[in-house]
Every structure is written in C-alpha cells, then in structure tokens.
C-alpha cells in the first residue's frame, strides 16, 4: 500500500491507534459520570498551556499537560462544592481556559504553530512526541486496567462505591490526572477542538450496541480504532485534515447505527 511507504504516515497510524485505544477508555468513564463536556473544557484550556509553552520556549505539550491538570483538578474541586450542578464546574473552567488562551495567544510569535494545535497535525509528529504518546498510552492503559472495577463503580454510584470501601477521592484524583494528560497529548495529534469528540462519539456508538459495561468499553475502543484508521486513509487519499475526517466519520457512524439496528430488526422479523 502506497500510503504505508511514507514514514510520517506509519507514524500517524501508530500514534492514531494508540490514542484511539486510550481516549475511549477515559471517555467511557467521563460519559457515564455525565461529564461529557470535560474533554472540550480541558482541550480548550490546553490551548492556554500551548500558548504559554510557545511564549516561554518550552515544549507546548508540557505546557498543555500542566494547564490541563490544573483545570481538571479545578473542575473536580468545584464539582465537590456544588454536587448538584457539576456542569457549572465545566463551564467555569472552560471560560477561564479560553480567556487565558485568548490573552496568551496574542503574545505568540508563530501563529501557524499555535493554529496547528487547534486541528492537530497527526502527520507531523516529532520523535519526542511519538515517545511521549507511547509512554502516556502505556501508562493510561495500565492504570485504567488496574482501576477498571473501581472506575466502574465510582461512575455508577459514587456514594455506594464509598460505602463499599472504594477510595473514591483517590480514584477520582488519579482519573482526573489521566484525563488531563490524555487530552494534552491528544490535542497535539488530533487537535484540541476534536479531542472531546473522540472521547464521546465512539462511546456513544458503543452504548447503542453494548449489552454490558465490558462490551461498551471494548466496543468504544474498536469504534475509535476503526474511525482513526479509516479516517487517516480517507484524509490521505482525499487530501483532507485527518482530525476532522476521523471525527466526521464517527459522527456519521453514530447517526447510522439506529437506522442499521432498525433495518437489522426488520430483516430478522421477516426471516423469522
């Protein structure tokens, strides 16, 4: 295949697939905790870190990671103080993040570099970024696997989880850090504006087909990998932006699932 003869495309596939595995793992818990917009907030806040990184001359991903962690902890702190209005915490941090990004972006000399973080540049990954994605992916996958049942219970019923002995605060803290780091790394590759879609759309697809939690997690990962691989192919041959192609493919699939389910049910009815 011609597409795989290019080193940058092989790298794009590797990074894309790794992120397609870890983003939905985080996404399942985020969606089930009814915090779907957290990805959006963190990715927007990460732009402030990107701008700060570019101004200070440090790697923008490090800057994005630091700001994401602060934002995620801020969301968790506000959510604790206003338990009935968890969405307010997201809106507050989003406003603060976008405001800060807007102000700092005015001081960035290379606008093109800053803009590459908005929509991502999966085909322009440096060696350092590749290593970072591999390291973060392994860490996220390991922690997610080890805390699988704890994250499940905290997402299902935080109070019951506490009574069952789950260290809810510690689990929430670890999960917040995982989310922040994942968003920061993904922002560089698929783009800050597209991270939250990658976090939610594959999970929404899997929820329509999964019959239990395990199937939903596995389904979300499979959907995300399929969207990424197909999206990269389409983007390469149709000369489109890869991040946008991946997400639009996901949304198209999400819209098609109910129709496909109805068609399948009708076929079975006729066959039976």
């Amino acid at each position: 295949m011609a597409i795989l003869t290019h080193g940058f495309m092989r790298r794009a596939f590797l990074v894309g697939i790794l992120l397609a595995v870890i983003i939905p793992c985080i996404g399942v818990v985020v969606v089930l905790k009814r915090l779907s917009m957290i990805g959006d907030t963190l990715s927007h806040s990460s732009l402030a870190g990107v701008a700060a990184g570019l101004i200070l001359g440090i790697n923008p991903i490090i800057g994005a990671g630091a700001v994401c962690i602060v934002s995620a902890l801020g969301i968790e702190a506000i959510r604790k103080r206003m338990p009935g209005f968890s969405e307010i915490s997201i809106a507050i941090m989003m406003s603060a993040g976008v405001g800060l990004a807007g102000v700092l972006s005015g001081f960035v000399k290379s606008a093109a570099n800053f803009n590459s973080f908005l929509f991502g540049s999966i085909v322009a990954i440096s060696g350092f970024e590749l290593k970072l994605v591999i390291g973060v992916s392994c860490a996220v996958l390991l922690v997610f696997t080890l805390l699988y049942k704890e994250l499940f219970y905290v997402a299902f019923d935080e109070r019951a989880a506490r009574l069952a002995g789950v260290p809810v605060r510690a689990v929430n803290f670890v999960f917040t850090i995982l989310t922040a780091v994942t968003v920061a790394v993904a922002a560089r590759t698929v783009g800050a504006l597209i991270v939250s879609s990658m976090m939610v759309v594959p999970v929404a697809c899997a929820m329509q087909l999964g019959k239990n939690y395990r199937q939903t997690v596995i389904g979300a990962v499979l959907f995300a990998v399929a969207f990424t691989v197909a999206g990269l192919f389409i983007a390469y041959y149709a000369r489109l932006k890869p991040g946008g192609a991946i997400v639009l493919l996901g949304v198209l699939c999400l819209i098609s699932i109910p129709a496909a389910k109805r068609a399948y049910a009708s076929l079975r009815k006729h066959a039976g």
């Binding site: 089930l32 049942k149 499940f152 299902f156 069952a164 929820m207 019959k211 239990n212 939690y213």
Partner: peptide, 10 residues
C-alpha cells in the same frame, strides 16, 4: 450500560 451481575459484583 451495566448488567445486574456487574453492578452486584462491584
């Protein structure tokens, strides 16, 4: 999206 068994086991 969780079964009764998954919820009780938790």
């Amino acid at each position: 999206p969780a079964t009764a068994e998954e919820i009780v086991t938790a």
